[in-house]
């Protein structure tokens, strides 16, 4: 069965290549640009994994993650933060919320793919 990945980032220059990368790796991809859309998409699209940016307008990535982790329907959904915030505290904040990985920008495509495969298979 094809695994579903939700990409949440407000910058198309990130989402366009990421989408291409995921499709090349045979994942089913959905892209949203805001926290609200992400919460809706999690309900409808039921992704297996979310690639989540932290700095989003209004509802940020941390809030999306907190919401997702407290949602009983999403117990198996994995979360990977993709963020330009790189302090120790930022990483700790992500991990504290139950994120499965925290990848800092800029990242290598290979690392992202490897993390996803490790988490999903």
């Amino acid at each position: 069965m094809v695994k579903k990945i939700l990409i949440v980032d407000d910058e198309p220059s990130i989402t366009v290549p990421l989408t291409f990368l995921m499709e090349q790796n045979h994942f089913k991809v959905m892209v949203v640009h805001t926290g609200e859309d992400a919460l809706n998409a999690i309900d409808h699209f039921q992704p297996d994994l979310v690639l989540l940016d932290v700095m989003l307008p209004t509802i940020d990535g941390f809030q999306v993650c907190q919401n997702l982790k407290s949602n009983p329907k999403c117990t198996t959904t994995k979360v990977i933060f993709l963020s330009a915030m790189t302090r120790d505290i930022d990483l700790a904040k992500g991990n504290t919320l139950g994120a499965d990985a925290y990848i800092t920008k800029p990242f290598s495509n290979a690392d992202v793919v490897k993390q996803i495969i490790d988490l999903l298979f």
Binding site: E11, S13, I14, P17, L18, F20, L21, Q24, M55, L82, A84, M85, T86, T104, K105, P106, F107, S108, N109, A110
Partner: peptide, 24 residues
Amino acid sequence: KKMAKSLRSRIAAIRSVVDLMIQF
């Protein structure tokens, strides 16, 4: 912080695109 964030996002995009173009 702002500077680092902008730099990181931009470079992330470029790096990712370049990687793809090499790979495919």
